[in-house]
Simulated assay, not measured.
Amino acid sequence: MTTIGLEAMVSSMEKLLGLGEPNKVQDWFRQRNGNAYAGNFPWCDASITWAAVDSGNYNEVCFGTDYAYTVAHAARFQAAGEWTPMVNGIQGSGIRRGDIVFFDWAGSSSIGAIDHVGIVTGVSGDTVLTIEGNTANVCARRARAVHDIAGFGRPKYKTPPANVLPAVSLKHVVAAQKADIAGAQGSALHRAEGLLVERALNAKGYLAARWVDGSLGTMTRDAYSAWQKAYSAKHNLHWTGADLNGYAGMTSLKALGLETGLFKATA
């Protein structure tokens, strides 16, 4: 299956992880935009532009324009009505996976003061998880607090049709949970489907990236339980008992897939 939209954008940024400088993003951007970008220029937004082109999200993320200047990029999101200033805290803002997040190290929410940019991979409590180019001269994962975030743009990503979403079988997930928790550390039954469940929990901020390995062990169970409780409370479902114990049921598995758009639940 070909990944499109939000997940394709995140995947393209993941391709750059560990990239130092000078690098291919700088070379690529220079070839497209000329010698004004000669030498070791700041490339955080150039990496966003590269990933947008690489993933087929150039119009959605960059509005058909190459960006190296973060202020101009954030202003374009604002002009399109896709900008949210960080004035209500992490949880209050609704920031989520796939958002293009802009930073002001001085702590303001002013677009004119923006210093840096990255992409959100998940939210964990009051911490935003990102991938950023040109952070300490490399492309790396970071965890950012509200003070540093000026705001974020939310691209209008293409949404894959439901019939092309990967399927996650409830039967397989239940079997994997039983086997993986009882097995050795890192053991994984039905790893591909387990990865989809874990990516969904990571996207919602309940499972750290280090545990997204396809093994549905105790960390994943606890993350699933935390998500169940939050989802039930948010939608006034009054789930109790086995519906909150961290083990998948069809109702919760279907809800997790729909809420994140990462998979469709099947029997």
Results as ranks from 00 to 15, higher is better:
residue 186 G to M: 06
residue 193 E to V: 04
residue 170 L to A: 03
residue 166 P to I: 02
residue 138 V to S: 13
residue 196 L to P: 07
residue 145 A to M: 11
residue 149 I to M: 12
residue 203 A to F: 09
residue 132 E to L: 01
residue 171 K to H: 09
residue 165 L to N: 05
residue 184 A to I: 11
residue 143 A to Q: 15
residue 159 T to P: 00
residue 138 V to A: 12
residue 174 V to M: 10
residue 167 A to P: 00
residue 135 T to G: 05
residue 143 A to H: 10
residue 191 R to E: 12
residue 202 N to H: 15
residue 175 A to S: 13
residue 201 L to V: 03
residue 134 N to T: 01
residue 139 C to Q: 06
residue 133 G to Q: 02
residue 147 H to V: 10
residue 194 G to A: 10
residue 137 N to K: 09
residue 203 A to W: 07
residue 197 V to W: 11
residue 209 A to P: 01
residue 171 K to E: 13
residue 145 A to S: 15
residue 169 S to V: 09
residue 203 A to N: 05
residue 131 I to L: 04
residue 151 G to Q: 05
residue 149 I to F: 08
residue 131 I to C: 03
residue 192 A to E: 11
residue 171 K to L: 13
residue 137 N to C: 01
residue 169 S to Y: 13
residue 206 Y to K: 05
residue 174 V to A: 13
residue 151 G to R: 03
residue 157 Y to P: 13
residue 193 E to K: 05
residue 144 R to I: 14
residue 145 A to T: 15
residue 195 L to M: 12
residue 162 A to F: 08
residue 132 E to C: 02
residue 153 G to H: 05
residue 160 P to N: 05
residue 160 P to I: 09
residue 172 H to P: 00
residue 149 I to N: 09
residue 159 T to L: 09
residue 170 L to Y: 04
residue 164 V to T: 15
residue 183 G to Y: 04
residue 169 S to N: 12
residue 136 A to Y: 12
residue 149 I to T: 08
residue 167 A to F: 01
residue 130 T to I: 07
residue 167 A to H: 09
residue 185 Q to S: 15
residue 155 P to D: 10
residue 163 N to A: 10
residue 153 G to Y: 06
residue 153 G to M: 05
residue 191 R to M: 05
residue 134 N to F: 01
residue 153 G to R: 04
residue 148 D to V: 11
residue 190 H to C: 03
residue 182 A to N: 10
residue 199 R to T: 04
residue 147 H to C: 01
residue 161 P to L: 10
residue 141 R to N: 05
residue 210 R to D: 14
residue 193 E to M: 08
residue 200 A to H: 09
residue 138 V to M: 08
residue 159 T to C: 00
residue 200 A to F: 08
residue 148 D to A: 14
residue 131 I to G: 01
residue 197 V to R: 12
residue 194 G to I: 00
residue 188 A to V: 08
residue 152 F to R: 01
residue 174 V to R: 15
residue 173 V to N: 10
residue 210 R to K: 13
residue 147 H to P: 03
residue 172 H to I: 05
residue 136 A to L: 06
residue 183 G to P: 04
residue 146 V to H: 12
residue 173 V to C: 07
residue 139 C to I: 04
residue 182 A to M: 03
residue 194 G to T: 08
residue 178 K to F: 02
residue 175 A to Y: 05
residue 143 A to N: 15
residue 146 V to L: 04
residue 151 G to E: 03
residue 190 H to G: 00
residue 193 E to P: 03
residue 199 R to L: 14
residue 198 E to K: 06
residue 168 V to L: 06
residue 145 A to P: 01
